[in-house]
Write a protein that binds this DNA or RNA. Structure first.
Length: 585
RNA sequence: GGUGUGGUAGUUCAGUUUGGUUAGAAUAUCGGCCUGUCACGCCGAGGGUCGCGGGUUCAAGUCCCGUCCACACCGCCA
């Protein structure tokens, strides 16, 4: 037996017990006459003590132990004369009488501490060392507990966890697929699922009316801090339900998780906001409602005063930053630079300082008198001491720039408290999105999303106006999940494919399996999927999902630890009947 | 595909604006001293392809061009 206890286990009650422990040398403090060693395992840290007077040979040996050596020790638990109340085992130490080095360690390339000196790249390359740090351990423990909580909650609600295949087929629409060549079927490829979408719908047809799965999904698109090529979803589907049934069920799940994991009790119902409301008031479809500072259109108030920028703009909108009227020239310039960044894309920024004395000072005083500016302030509900920030231009770009500006101000003013959770449902998404490049409509959610019944007739006349039975769960400005009521009728599904520009044969070839299933009694159904990595990182208070994934990939989709993706043997290519076309020099 | 930031000791960074002596700090490592430390302390030492390639110059970490890598973002992500 390697050990009798773990390094987080022994307490003052265990004094005088003879124990053995195994773990890693976290740090040693060599005082000459005696040496202390912190021994670490998954469960904690226990201090070992070696004394020259008691056993000089053993103590000498202990002095030579380096960081991250794996050792096994035995000794007697003793009460410390100087207690360390900062750690759970700080009242005791082990007076060692024997130890073995199970494995020595080279000096690690970075320190294994909460505040490590290692940069991201190095931590990724030696991920197994990074994961030894207790902050990373906490993240993975949180992830585990959250997964358990999901399984418990949904199982109690009669959901069945059913696995779906990973080798499936590529379909048009949506993200790029990762593909896997088939050796037994030369020239043909499997695709990895972007989500188990069609399979869970087929499970509904099969009568498994409540399905869930914590499942890997794959999308071959460019990455971000919150996007990995492979990521995990809490994927669900329910039959014989309407939108409210799904929202209620997953609102329950979310509240339960917040309560049991974070100790955050939310008693009232999550607010529901339409997609168009979200755009008008927040400038995007995933509003962070931890703070107000909503967008206000003031086009009507500003036109026709001879200020060309406003007169020629499709949309003029503003936000009100509370208590910022004392902003210096430098601070306003910094905000102007912020909105003029290419990613934001505004041409400039107009400000109005609502001075504490009730007067107004703006960058457009030449065109607007005090009364006009007072009118703007009143529209935005601004008080003396506030600062109005105004952007103008074409509507969609200006809304999104105002949204970015609002978030920037929220960050600056400290309004984004990570311990507050502000969830809401965004509903009534458009069914379709026009794409200018390919001159056709695309499904905003996916091609199986049901239009709202009252909008179905618009499918022929004005497809862009059709609203979908689709919904997103947004928490603190992060899109945590989304779903929809699906089409369960063959004719409507065919009509949908037609609107998306699929020829009937094409639709049949790509999605015939689903439409065939709809011929045999498909129940009304719908579902939702939560981004599990995002949910965990939100609960952990992190901005990147990489720290809640044991072995993530970098910005370019590479795993720098195992160095993948990588070339494969010529022999293997041959077997797969694949030839690599060399990139042009 | 694009925009921005960065790449200097094992590591994290300063130094680059304005080219000029032997490229610094912290931390880690190694050696010495130290019997109650817990981020131990004190003394000392070693440690550099300034990402890579080219150019300008008497002289390049510093200026110019190219390139690679990392990170953040835009496009993209049903």
């Amino acid at each position: 037996m390697y050990r009798t206890h773990t390094c987080g286990q022994l307490k003052i009650e265990d004094v005088d017990k003879m124990v053995s422990l195994a773990g890693w040398v976290q740090r040693s403090r060599d005082l000459g006459g005696m040496t202390f060693i912190d021994l670490r395992d998954r469960y904690g840290i226990t201090q070992l003590v070696f004394n020259m007077e008691t056993d000089s040979a053993l103590c000498e040996k202990a002095r030579k132990l380096g960081r991250e050596f794996v050792i096994r020790i035995s000794g007697k638990v003793a009460e410390r004369s100087n207690k360390n109340l900062k750690i759970p085992t700080g009242e005791i130490e082990i007076i060692c009488n024997k130890f073995d080095i199970l494995n020595a360690s080279e000096v690690p390339p970075f320190t294994i501490e909460d505040e490590t000196d290692g940069g991201d790249e190095l931590r990724m390359k030696y991920r197994y060392l990074d994961l030894r740090r207790s902050v990373m351990k906490k993240n993975l423990e949180l992830r585990h507990r959250m997964a358990q909580e999901v399984r418990n909650y949904l199982s109690k609600q009669n959901f069945l966890e059913i696995e779906t295949p990973v080798l499936i087929k590529s379909t048009p629409e949506g993200a790029r697929d990762f593909v896997v060549p088939s050796r037994m079927n030369p020239g043909q490829f499997y695709a990895l699922p972007q989500s188990p979408q069609t399979f869970k719908q087929l499970l509904m047809v099969a009568g498994y009316d409540r399905y869930f799965q914590i499942v890997k999904c794959f999308r071959d698109e460019d990455l971000r801090a919150d996007r990995q090529p492979e990521f995990t979803q809490i994927d669900c589907e329910m039959a014989f339900v309407e939108q409210d049934d799904i929202l209620d069920t997953f609102e329950g799940l979310t509240k339960n998780m917040l309560s049991n994991i974070k100790g955050v009790e939310i008693t009232e119902a999550f607010p529901r906001m339409s997609y168009s409301e979200a755009l008008e008031n927040y400038g995007n479809d995933k509003p962070d409602i931890r703070f107000e500072m909503t967008l206000h259109e003031i086009s009507g108030l500003v036109k026709g005063k001879g200020f060309e920028v406003f007169d020629s703009a499709e949309y003029v909108g503003a936000i009100c930053a509370e208590s910022c009227s004392e902003y210096s020239r430098k601070q306003v310039d910094a905000l102007t630079d912020f909105v003029k960044k290419p990613q934001i894309g505004a041409k400039g920024l107009v400000y109005v300082k609502c001075n504490p004395d009730g007067s107004y000072k703006s960058s457009v005083d030449k065109f607007f008198d005090q009364d006009a500016l007072a009118g703007w302030a009143s529209e935005l509900g601004a008080k003396p001491g506030d600062l109005l920030l105004v952007l103008a231009g074409d509507k969609s770009r200006t809304l999104s720039a105002l949204s970015e500006l609002r978030l920037e101000m929220g960050r600056t003013l400290g309004l984004m408290d990570k311990t507050i959770f502000a969830p809401l449902w965004v509903v009534d998404f458009p069914l379709l999105e026009w794409d200018e490049d390919s001159r056709r409509f695309y499904a905003m959610h996916h091609p199986f999303t049901s239009p709202r019944p009252e909008d179905i007739e618009l499918l022929d006349s004005d497809p862009g106006k059709v609203r979908a039975n689709a919904y997103d769960l947004v928490i603190n400005g992060v899109e945590i999940g989304g779903g929809s009521i699906r089409i369960h009728d063959k004719a409507l599904q065919q009509k949908m494919f037609k609107t998306l520009g699929f020829a009937p044969e094409e639709a049949e070839a790509q999605f015939g399996f689903l439409m065939n299933a709809f011929r045999f009694g498909a129940p009304p159904h719908g579902g939702i999927a939560f981004g599990f990595d995002r949910l965990v990182s939100l609960f952990a208070g992190l901005d990147s999902i990489r720290d809640v994934i044991a072995f993530p990939k970098n910005n370019s989709g590479r795993d720098v630890m195992i160095d993948s993706p990588a070339k494969i043997e010529e022999e293997l290519l041959k077997e797969l009947r694949l030839r690599i076309e060399q990139a042009k020099a």
